[in-house]
Simulated scan of single mutants.
Amino acid sequence: MNDILNLTGVTKGYNHGKPNEVQVLRGIDLTIGAGEVVALVAPSGAGKSTLLHIAGLLDTPDNGTVSIAGEDVTGLPDRRRTAIRRADVGFVYQFHHLLPEFTALENIVLPQLANGVPQREAETRAKDLLARVGVADRASHRPSALSGGQQQRVAFCRALANGPRLLLADEPTGNLDTVTSDQVFDALMELVRATGMSALIATHNLELAARMDRTVRLDAGLVTPAVPA
């Protein structure tokens, strides 16, 4: 199994040299294989968002290396990192962050246009993604006219619009009630499995974590395999 994400010896701290210096990540080693879906479980404030941002090239580590699909991306110029992030990484957050002035369809089309995809091709892919998560009939609606679950489904589609190899999700169902959370998570997993991408999904929900391929725990700045209850 080829590795899609590999973090080796990754450290990250803030306020270096100051009395309130904080070391968030203390030497992260984490590998995710092709097509593997990994749950990241962490207590509040453990640094999971920092870890996801480094994995997704939104931040840089103080030490260590980050590789995506076998390429060491740690020290690449910003322009190259941006190109890799745009093509190979999809992000989903706890809040949908959809652009309010655009329709559901347009929110999925826009990142494709930014990546050089022709308009008609981008619209076709957006419609297909919306159909896969069961909200094709909401394509012309703006986010304010969608329910919370529908908004998050559209956010999933936007994250997958450019066909990334790696999906990074930070509490993607954290704002939803239990029933809606289960339904939306099912939709996300169906998308991920259908495309064969890899995913690192941070969640507090141990039942959702158990439905992924494996679970790792982030605590005290280190990642360790989760111990079954």
Rank of each mutant, 00 (worst) to 15 (best):
A155R: 01
F156P: 14
F156V: 10
C157V: 14
C157K: 02
C157R: 02
C157E: 14
C157D: 13
C157M: 11
R158A: 12
R158Q: 09
A159M: 13
A159S: 14
A159Y: 07
A159V: 14
L160W: 10
L160T: 12
A161W: 03
A161L: 06
A161K: 02
N162K: 01
G163P: 08
P164A: 09
P164C: 09
R165C: 03
R165H: 11
R165Q: 15
R165E: 15
L166E: 09
L166S: 07
L166D: 06
L167M: 12
L167W: 07
A169N: 03
A169D: 07
A169Q: 04
D170V: 05
D170Y: 13
D170I: 03
D170H: 15
E171A: 11
E171W: 11
E171Y: 11
P172F: 05
P172M: 04
P172Q: 02
T173G: 04
T173R: 02
T173L: 02
T173M: 02
T173N: 05
T173C: 04
T173H: 02
N175D: 11
L176D: 07
L176V: 13
L176H: 04
D177I: 02
D177S: 04
D177N: 04
T178K: 01
V179A: 13
T180F: 02
T180K: 00
T180P: 04
T180W: 01
S181I: 05
S181P: 10
S181H: 04
S181G: 15
S181Y: 07
D182G: 11
D182C: 03
Q183C: 00
Q183Y: 01
V184F: 12
V184M: 10
F185M: 15
D186N: 12
D186C: 02
A187P: 10
A187F: 09
A187G: 13
A187N: 07
A187H: 04
L188F: 12
L188P: 03
M189T: 13
E190Q: 10
E190C: 05
E190Y: 00
E190V: 14
L191R: 00
L191N: 01
V192W: 05
A194I: 03
A194T: 04
A194F: 03
T195N: 07
T195L: 11
T195S: 13
G196W: 01
G196D: 11
M197P: 00
M197E: 00
M197L: 15
S198P: 07
S198L: 05
A199L: 12
L200S: 09
L200E: 06
I201D: 00
I201M: 06
T203Q: 09
T203F: 05
T203A: 05
H204V: 09
H204G: 12
